[in-house]
Design a protein around this nucleic acid. Sequence first.
DNA 1: AAGTTCACG
DNA 2: ACGTACGTGAACTTT
Length: 886
Amino acid sequence: MEKLILIDGNSIIYRAFFAMPPLTNSSGLHTNAVYGFTNMLLRLIQEENPTHILVAFDAGKETFRHEGYQEYKGGREKTPSELSEQFPLMRELLESLGIAWFELSGYEADDIIGTISKQGEDSGREVLVVTGDKDMLQVVSDKVTVALTRKGISEVEPYGPKEIEEKYGLSPLQIIDLKGLMGDASDNIPGVPGIGEKTALKLLHQFGSVEEVLSHTDELKGKMKENLVNHAEDARMSKRLATIFREVPVERSWEDMTFTGLKEETAVPMLRKLEFKSLLERLSFTGGDSEAGHEAAEPVKELDVTIVNAAVMPELGELLPQIKDLHVESSGENPHHAILMGMVLSTPERHFYISPEFLKSEEAGPILAWLKDENVPKRGYNLHRTDLTLHWEGIPFAGANFDIELAAYLLDPTENDQTLSALSTKYGISRLASDDDVYGKGAKFKVPNEEVLSQHLARKCDAIMKLVPLQEAELEKNEMRSLFYDLEMPLSRILADMEKQGVAVNRDDLVELGKEFEAQISKLVAKIYEIAGQEFNLNSPKQLGEILFDKLGLPVIKKTKTGYSTDAEVLEKLAPYNDIVQYILEYRQLAKLQSTYVEGLLKEIRSETGKVHTYFRQTVAATGRLSSQYPNLQNIPIRMEEGRKIRKVFVPSEEGWLILGADYSQIELRVLAHISGDKGLQEAFLHDMDIHTKTAMDVFGVSADQVDANMRRSAKAVNFGIVYGISDYGLSQNLNITRKEAARFIDQYFDAFEGVRKYMDEIVRDAKRDGYVKTLLERRRYLPEINASNFNLRSFAERTAMNTPIQGTAADIIKLAMVLMDEALSSHGLKSRMLLQVHDELVFEVPPEELEVMTKLVPETMEKALKLSVPLKAEVSSGLNWYEAK
DNA sequence: AAGTTCACG
DNA sequence: ACGTACGTGAACTTT
């Protein structure tokens, strides 16, 4: 016998919230309502043993009931943010448990339940509705039982036709009439004044329905008669409002609601994230090893680790073909200078520890062959680092197939602790000591003896093996398999190749440039000390502040947490008061160039190669962008001529070759045109117009030739603001205008680009509902603060919701282009090399005979990376160095 | 380890 | 009214 449980999600989560004491997980997320709801859900499943389950939610503020009666549900307290932030969590949890949920704009959960219960009943199935709302009793029948919550949510009381008759002396449908007469304060349904439950029941027992009561008012008397006559229309309307609509266009099939058991593989990580330990135990989802939950009680069992030596090699050689999991341990921040500490290869039963010495010995041949075989799929943690570490040891590595760190990043790019230890805890697999605990941190770092080390590394490899299927299930659930396997995994190998290649730097020219800067700096310092009347540490904002504001008496424009602000923005405003300010600004600029770019870059040049080898981090930026370290080659100066000269020292690594750069033109605004569907913006890009001029025309309502430089500048700032998730305050700061003027600009922009306005509204609304936003390629970013009551936190999350799909999709696109470019270079047999990515730009070094083909191939490949409703455009240029490739 | 400033997209 | 533009990394000073 099939049995469906229908749950009124809103009703239950509200009741759970107020019934449960406050509860947060360790990251401060409120979870009490989710906990209460889940508890009840699990109890229901256990007791009722349903074959189908659906949780219905209200969607949107406006429902069809508001059409006839604007005050419907008026006067309600705003939902506290501690509760509203739990809605997205609840939906996510339901999905991970494998329980269907549904909502439909314009309808309440009641109506969805009314509709589905009717369908169930019509097809002869048994239905149990769970809610805290008595209105729901109207759907009761032989087949449909309504369970009303009692005492918070800890108990439910089932109502069939018999129970309703016993309690009220009414039929289920008469519940509507009851509500029509007595009203409902919580929904702001008026009813008839002076008539409460007692009177209403008396009337209904006598006449049967609202209509009958109203047509027999002559048989009544006194105040009650008067009220009924005067409020007849209120009574009819109240009845209409209380009537559950049972014809909702529900697009959920019976199969969609099938419940065959909880989905352990996705439920466990979610319950772990919420830190619902008691639920995990109750479900005996302790996962793999049993120590989770009672860590102290059970001793951690030793893994079977074999230290590999010549004698063990034959045995390992036998097993190699079936090994997929490895962990290479190395120390040091910079992977290009990492020190190899050891390696573990694992089967489900056994772990093989290979010391650095053995790996470099003659006997390790089969292991090296295994490592470099691209047809052997390998799974590990940060295989990008593994590749680089081994590379500098002279050991080729290929075949990366599943990277735990990369998967963790895609599943939650804002989580900053993605260590194997943290992931083990999160997914509830056997505990893994943190590296800091095993090695000590900072100056205390020490490699333990081989027995301890090999055991720790084996545990890591064991964790990798266990995490793979869990993360795979989550990637699958989030529809991220393609993003992971087709984009990020291939890209990680490409990045490693680019980094190994490195970029040649002309050391002599850089030193020379440093001398020029030095000469200018010492002149400026002398002048500054002269005006100040004393020497001081110019690099100290504190000392500088004392000179400027206390000694020279300049006006204080802005303060920081710790004292006077002396940033460039403040100094610009102070410039008219004293010449010293201009000198300080110039000093700051040159000092930055000298320390970060001349001295900093010189330190990063590898003497053996004369190159810098940056490390592109693929798992840090919340939007999906890359970042670059040791050195950062994504922030080499370009805006100011003095700094731009730095680019002259980045040169081809081979005689006669050239540097070629190609950058996307307005990629973010093109992405916005695509995802917002705004016709005007799309039109502009289809005709390849100057987008800032076009914006100025539409915002100021003028023709192209009427747009002056200032209008274009303003329009450009507005466009930036739009991409960043606009706010009047931010724009006013940028353009140095009042907030009111900025607000007017924004309004005019949205009037001109209605599609963009609609997108911005919708993305924020979606984020509030789902708790996350997505890019075109399904990259996610969770926004837990989107429903916060704190204005600052919430506003920040709202701007992030607007910006991330744009910036993130642009990141997706250039990553796609890199994968395509890598394929194109090898399929065309070209010698040209991809060296750098700078968010919307790719940099190559090219032999002269390939310049022509590359000048065509690179922009073409970038432009076809992803098909949008507007064309992508890439512009290419080349020269003897990076400065000239502009 | 945190705060300030500034380089880039 | 609330008070900030989005995303990074490095150098330097102060705590």
